[in-house]
Simulated assay, not measured.
Amino acid sequence: MRNIFTKLCVAATIGAAALVAAPAAHAVGVTAADTHPEQATFTTAPAGEVSIQAAGDGTPAGAIQWYKNHLGSTGWQGLCEKAAENSYGVTGVWASANAHWNGASPKHTTGTPPAGSFVYWNISAYGHVGIADGSGGFYATSVGGAIGHGSSVSYFNNYRGWTPAAVPHQ
């Protein structure tokens, strides 16, 4: 009986790991020429600050927590829109960051984006999107080659602006 229980526990652990595994990387046009590395900071979440329950729960705080939980991950490289959507607990809403920018409203091109709002750049054929930290910085893919934190939206060239924090929908 104990052997069966052990096998079930191992199978459940492997299954759970498969559910949270990062998607495969796909290279999309964010290059070193598009970034200002001095505008990035890399942090790891101290023990006790990572909240799996809050991440991806459809709230601005949950979206930020999702990015904090994935700091350093390279699994979403080339999938910035998917990461932004996943941070709000959805996926497959917009085909790209450009499509999200073009379809979302209202658009703001000035001011400090509130925490959890979407921030956009026009730096590739698909654009780029991340989530604002509320202090003028953001979380996104392609920050130093991984999910990271930039202390200013000036980290990437061609900043477009922001749209309000909300679960992505068309």
Rank of each mutant, 00 (worst) to 15 (best):
M1S: 15
N3W: 06
F5E: 14
F5Y: 04
T6L: 15
T6F: 14
A11Y: 09
G15L: 02
A16Y: 13
A18Y: 02
V20D: 10
A21I: 01
A21T: 03
P23D: 05
A24P: 01
A25T: 11
A25L: 10
A25G: 01
H26V: 15
A27S: 11
V28M: 07
V28Y: 03
G29D: 14
V30C: 05
A32D: 11
A33I: 01
A33F: 02
A33E: 14
T35R: 08
T35V: 14
Q39T: 03
Q39V: 06
A40E: 06
T41H: 11
F42I: 10
T43N: 12
T44M: 13
P46V: 02
A47C: 08
G48I: 09
A55R: 04
G56C: 10
G56L: 10
D57K: 07
D57Q: 08
T59W: 09
I64P: 00
K68S: 08
N69K: 11
L71M: 11
G72L: 02
A83P: 03
A83N: 02
E85K: 02
S87A: 12
Y88A: 02
Y88T: 05
Y88S: 06
G89E: 08
G89V: 07
V90D: 10
T91N: 13
H100M: 14
H100R: 08
G103A: 15
S105H: 07
S105R: 10
S105C: 06
K107D: 05
G111A: 12
P113M: 14
V119Q: 07
V119T: 13
V119G: 12
I123E: 14
S124V: 03
S124W: 10
A125P: 02
Y126N: 12
G127M: 06
H128R: 01
H128A: 00
V129H: 05
I131H: 04
G134I: 07
S135L: 12
G137C: 08
Y139S: 01
Y139N: 01
Y139D: 00
A140T: 03
A140C: 09
T141H: 02
S142Q: 15
G144F: 11
G145Y: 00
I147V: 13
I147S: 04
S151R: 11
S152H: 03
V153I: 09
F156T: 00
Y159E: 03
R160H: 01
W162S: 04
W162F: 12
T163A: 13
P164K: 15
P164E: 14
A166H: 09
V167Y: 05
H169R: 14
Q170C: 08
Q170W: 12
Q170A: 15
